[in-house]
């Protein structure tokens, strides 16, 4: 079965505002997928529903056949758009935390990545810069061996050199049966590694295709096509 995630008729409302409207979607294995769209189009809401952090009003999400719960949390490695680690913790305490809770956390891999980015394990998070904190979180997430990585704005706060390292890590370190769903505004930076793109607008899927099709059919890069579609 190639389907990793199946989203069927998903609707999520915040009061009277509809964030997701009857959204259906399928994600396949072994793909790097860009989830793209303007602010407020529902990207983060969709991601949070997949992670069980929001309960949808209608519809269903199945990840490898299971609804969001303990089993899916073992299979998803999620990087939120905000800092979710306690600031008084040291990096090594976070490594111990992730090792304790996630059987698929690869401690040596995380340590190697920290060393590559010159991050001291004894540093406490509150002593690190915003960008370094984001790097630490991304390392913790990418050091898990899972079926699905969901990254919400993974490179927004890091410097270009670290961005290149992170993208290289994403590209080389995940298994061929895993997929990466990545939400970002920095399309030009990640375009080279994307296999598929999903354009979202007003809580619905506007387009779901592979990047090669966009280039072939429209003669444009994904970034240029995105700017054309969402021109103000």
């Amino acid at each position: 079965m190639n389907n990793l995630v199946t989203v069927s008729h998903l609707t999520k409302k915040y009061g009277h505002k509809t964030a997701l409207s009857d959204l259906s979607l399928t994600l396949n294995r072994g793909r790097i997928i860009g989830l793209l769209g303007p602010n407020g189009c529902g990207k983060s809401t969709l991601i949070k529903c997949m992670n069980g952090l929001l309960v949808p009003n209608k519809g269903e999400i199945l990840i490898e056949g299971s609804k969001p719960g303990i089993e899916t949390k073992k299979k998803i490695s999620y990087l939120p758009e905000r800092s979710y680690c306690q600031s008084n913790m040291q990096v090594r305490e976070l490594l111990s935390y992730f090792s304790d809770f996630y059987e698929n956390f690869l401690l040596e891999k995380a340590r190697a990545m920290l060393a590559d980015l010159d991050i001291d394990e004894k540093s406490s998070l509150k002593s690190l810069s915003k960008g370094t904190k984001e790097k630490v979180q991304l390392i913790l997430v990418m050091a898990r061996d899972v079926s699905l990585y969901i990254l919400d704005e993974p490179i927004a706060g890091v410097d270009p050199a670290a961005r290149d390292y992170i993208l290289k890590t994403i590209l080389t370190d995940y298994s061929e049966n895993a997929s990466i769903l990545m939400s970002t505004h920095l399309i030009s930076d990640i375009e080279a590694i994307l296999d598929d793109v999903i354009f979202m607008k007003e809580g619905q899927i506007l387009l779901s295709t592979d990047t090669e099709s966009i280039r072939a059919e429209h003669g444009k890069s994904v970034d240029a096509y995105f700017r054309e579609v969402f021109a103000c």
Binding site: N51, G52, L53, I70, E71, K73, K74, I76, Y78, P80, R82, S83, Y84, C85, Q86, F101, Y102
Partner: peptide
């Protein structure tokens, strides 16, 4: 703070009930 603010993003994505 641990369950309903930013830290909740980690706590509620741990494989625990």
């Amino acid at each position: 703070k641990n369950l309903y603010t930013d830290e909740g993003y980690l706590m509620h994505t741990l494989p625990v009930t």
